[in-house]
Design a binder for these strands. Structure first.
Length: 572
RNA sequence: CGGGGUGUAGCGCAGCUGGUCAGCGCGCAGCGUUUGGGACGCUGAGGCCGGAGGUUCAAAUCCUCUCACCCCGACCA
């Protein structure tokens, strides 16, 4: 490809709408163009990257037993009502109505369609397992699209669905996918970490997310430095530590003027935060819930929501708390009635806590569970954080941010039961097919690759997914043979099967080098009067500092060799 | 949906206490000089100032409504 013929140009200045690095660089490199919020055109360079990612994903899906198909974007709303997930997706579903007033949605995912399809085709356990997949554009009316390709309302996704006759089969399918996913990320030069993930309200036994570690990531990951345990903070467990308080003492009231927060109370009473109880109020499906947790810990709302089995959870307003006759800032579960109490299990191990007195500016000393109060639910509802102990091995936990580039999920039989996907087993009995689903955000992978591979000059593409492998960069000078030689090398490299972006523009060296750096093509081949004097061309890897000279004779073979070497090697 | 912000040339922005306020830089076109890290000179093209109302002798500028986009939060298989 000749740069002079490309549809897009590079930008010197970053468009104001971009905040994250990948978004800025994608715009500056002329790889994407926004149409409306969260919806982008993939311009030729980005499309080439996406196709490379797709090729790798396709190869691994096929190798793992997948079979590719393509399902419709346009789906009847009825199907979603049948599964009940029209409610779960809510406003995230793009709705439309056809000329016959039939309600349709733009598919946000394809479990319903595939399950229906499978139900029409599978009769017997002999027909299983199945692993159909597709690469398809998904539509989700996100409350807030952001970060360019990182979170769009229209995005490319690979989705595979597994259908098995029994749990063991599901486990095999699931493991095959975990393996395939590891292969995919590693082949793309984009190391991703598999972390345990929350399985959500719909349930299921296991779920893993694949995370690319990046500052701009929307998710927080908790990871053990000892055993390698890693989990999304939504799900992560940690050792909370024992807090002794001695033998239970008599409950006693103390005045705490002006002290309402944990910090204030613990400073005022000269007691460490872990010896206090924190009260947090939520509205769960419209009902007030009182969450109690040790003062040094924070409530994990996902865990709380799962324990409450509610669909809507949010912090309660002060008015809602007051309406229940509770004193915010001095609330406690002691002598409380009429409100559902959920306590973190951390409160069961210590004694003689400080808790609110349920009267303004008053607290209680020596509060003990279960002597002084009860809870409707006792469970782990604490948010894990760096520095705590690993629940598995006792090692030390650290926290990092990640971009979710893949999510695999054991679905179970929820959908197959709702949509009538049954099979007949060996004993002749009808049973629901056991499902799993496995997604990879293709566009998000592209963006994540940039988040992880860039410098202040621009993108540094991992070789396997780079739009082109070589940036051929002749530096023009009147009366020299540079142009002619460049054309020759372009033909030679291209004939050798090397993907070349040929900067045939009559531009100054600075312009060309800066564009080469911005576009991030892995290998830059420069030809100038200077190199021609030595009958050679300059070879420079985008990722490296140094450059070297290679003789013009046999340059195509040399270039191809270097690329193959790097493709095969660890460093891409 | 709550909070905040921004809409002026392809991009980045200034002008916004009403009256040469239709401007600057980059980019673009032509000509010439340049060519190893975003060169220089000259000439030129390009804007219903997001939209609709209103106030006024006069509106990019003030008021109202509206639309779009961005950020924080909420939300998120």
């Amino acid at each position: 490809m000749r740069v002079s013929k490309m549809l897009t140009r590079t930008l010197k200045e970053t468009p104001a709408e971009a905040e994250t690095i990948s978004h800025k660089l994608l715009l500056r490199a002329g790889m994407i163009s926004q149409l409306v919020a969260g919806v982008y055109t993939y311009l030729p360079l980005a499309w080439r990257v996406l196709r490379k990612i797709e090729d790798i994903v396709r190869a691994e899906m096929d190798a793992a037993g997948g079979q590719e198909l393509s399902m419709p974007v346009l789906q009847p709303l009825d199907l979603w009502q049948k599964s009940g997930r029209d409610v779960a997706f809510g406003k995230g579903l793009f709705n439309l109505t056809d000329r016959r007033e039939r309600k349709l949605v733009l598919g946000p995912t394809h479990e319903e369609v595939i399950t229906q399809l499978v139900s029409q085709n599978v009769r017997s356990y002999r027909d299983l397992p199945l692993m159909p997949y597709q690469m398809q554009t998904k539509f989700r009316d996100e409350p807030r699209a952001r970060g360019g390709l990182l979170r769009g309302r229209e995005f490319l996704m690979k989705d595979l669905y597994s259908f098995d006759a029994d749990e063991a089969g599901l486990a095999r399918s699931y493991d095959a996918m975990l393996q395939a996913y590891h292969h995919i990320y590693s082949r793309c030069g984009l190391p991703a970490l598999a972390v345990e993930a929350d399985s959500g309200a719909i349930g299921g036994k296991a779920s893993h997310e694949f995370m690319v570690i990046a500052e701009s990531g929307e998710d927080e990951i908790i990871r053990c430095n000892g055993c390698g345990y890693a989990a999304n903070v939504e799900k992560a467990e940690a050792v909370k530590g024992e807090v002794s308080g001695g033998a239970p003492l008599l409950l006693e009231e103390v005045a705490t003027p002006g002290a309402a927060t944990i910090e204030e109370v613990s400073a005022f009473l000269k007691v460490p935060p872990q010896r206090t109880l924190k009260a947090v109020f939520y509205m769960a499906d419209g009902q007030l819930v009182f969450a109690v947790i040790r003062g040094d810990l924070d409530v994990n709302e996902v865990k709380l929501k799962n324990n409450l089995r509610c669909t809507d959870l949010r912090m309660a307003s002060e008015a809602e708390v007051n309406a229940a006759g509770i004193v915010a800032g001095a609330a406690s579960p002691v002598k409380l009635s009429g409100v559902r109490v959920v306590a973190d299990d951390s409160i069961t191990s210590g004694t003689n806590f400080i808790a609110g007195g349920n009267r303004p500016e008053t607290h209680l000393r020596n509060v003990n569970y279960p002597r002084d109060f009860s809870a409707d639910i006792i469970a782990d509802i604490a948010r894990a954080r760096a520095g705590q102990g690993c629940a598995r091995c006792g090692g030390s936990l650290s926290a990092m941010r990640g971009i979710e580039v893949g999510h695999v999920f054991k679905l179970g039989t929820f959908l197959s039961e709702k949509l009538g996907a049954f099979f007949v087993d060996e004993k002749g009995e009808s049973r629901p097919i056991i499902m799993g689903c496995y997604g990879i955000g293709l566009g998000r992978m592209l963006a994540a690759a940039i988040e992880q591979n860039h410098d202040d000059k621009g993108i540094i593409w991992p070789l396997p997914i780079a739009p082109y492998q070589v940036y051929l960069c002749p530096l023009y000078r009147e009366g020299s043979a540079v142009a002619e030689v460049a054309e020759k090398i372009y033909n030679e490299l291209t004939s050798a099967g090397v993907e070349v972006l040929f900067d045939d523009r009559v531009e100054s060296p600075g312009v060309k080098f800066n564009d080469a750096d911005l576009l991030g093509i892995p290998l830059r081949v420069t030809i100038s009067p200077r190199t021609l004097d030595k009958n050679s061309a300059e070879m420079k890897w985008r990722r490296d500092k140094e450059s070297s000279l290679a003789p013009l004779e046999g340059i195509a073979g040399r270039g191809k060799g270097l690329i193959n070497e790097r493709m095969a090697g660890a460093q891409v």
